[in-house]
């Protein structure tokens, strides 16, 4: 990208390095395969390896469980609402922060990153303490507020990266041709932000859908899918059913992540993390 000359040592990678890299990547991926395998096991009392037999009956069993459907529905609703809020707040912040320099800019950046940089437990307990202090009863909204707070940064990062790549001369050209600020926004800025906004939204959705730590602090009796899974992890009832749900969650989160990747591929660099 930076230089067209062929750099030195850009031959084959040393074998040791290759092995270490492949080994590390395998370490990152093998554990997921075991979940898949265990979703088909006939053994439901322990995590015996190798499974004594294989069966597909747990998928049917999981479909029949109303508690799973309820938890899934709640998680989807929360993620959808938190994502909407994060998309609005995150893109506003990105629009304000790109190309401007003002006193306190660094502090604002820090404020946006803080909810994700500090451990989730601190965000969680702070919100819980604040809700208690103001006598706000726990509801789906207390969860949504918590989720939206840490989802803002994901949208912000994606949109900011796109803003930086969108040429400022395009905006100036639009203005020169007689469009006002709002028209420029609708016809020039928004289309160029589109995929970045969508990608940020999808990542925010995945982040919220999966969140457990902040949720346990901001939920009353509401049971989101992660809370359901946690209770199954602590006190297993039907282990293979939990495996089936886990497989479903893997698939459900891979789709938005892959989509986000392809939407921003080749255009933006992703930030370091969630």
């Amino acid at each position: 990208m930076r230089s067209n000359r062929t750099p030195v040592n850009r031959t084959a990678a040393p074998i040791g390095l290759k092995l270490a890299a492949v080994g590390g990547l395998l370490f990152l991926h093998l554990p997921m395969l075991f979940i898949l395998l265990y979703a088909f096991t006939t053994e439901d009392k322990s995590y015996q390896f190798p499974p004594p037999g294989l069966t597909g009956k747990w998928f049917a069993a999981a479909l029949d469980r109303q508690d799973i459907w309820d938890a899934l529905g709640l998680s989807l609703r929360i993620a959808a609402m938190a994502t909407m809020m994060a998309m609005v707040l995150g893109s506003l912040a990105a629009a304000a922060m790109y190309r401007t320099h003002f006193f306190g800019r660094e502090t604002i950046t820090l404020l946006i990153i803080l909810p994700i940089a500090l451990p989730g437990i601190i965000t969680g307990i702070s919100l819980r303490a604040a809700y208690n202090l103001m006598d706000i009863p726990f509801s789906i909204w207390t969860i949504v507020i918590g989720h939206a707070t840490f989802c803002v940064v994901v949208v912000y990062n994606n949109v900011l990266a796109r803003f930086r790549r969108t040429s400022a001369s395009l905006i100036e050209a639009s203005m020169d041709l007689g469009a006002d600020g709002f028209q420029t926004f609708r016809h020039v800025i928004l289309p160029s932000l589109g995929t970045a906004l969508l990608a940020g939204g999808m990542l925010a959705f995945a982040l919220s859908f999966d969140e457990i730590i902040v949720t346990t602090f901001t939920a009353g009796h509401q049971q989101t899918l992660p809370i359901w899974m946690l209770s199954e992890l602590v006190r297993p009832r039907q282990r293979p059913v939990t495996n089936v749900v886990a497989v479903f969650v893997i698939v459900a989160t891979f789709v938005p992540i892959l989509a986000a990747y392809y939407l921003t591929r080749g255009t933006d660099a992703h930030g370091g993390g969630k």
């Binding site: 554990p31 997921m32 979940i35 999966d210 886990a246």
Partner: peptide, 21 residues
């Protein structure tokens, strides 16, 4: 993608996988 997918995939599912392992 090999690094991004594990980073973004479900926290609890990953913990659960290790409990099995």
């Amino acid at each position: 993608l090999g690094v991004m997918l594990p980073l973004w995939s479900s926290y609890l599912v990953k913990v659960y996988a290790w409990k099995l392992i």
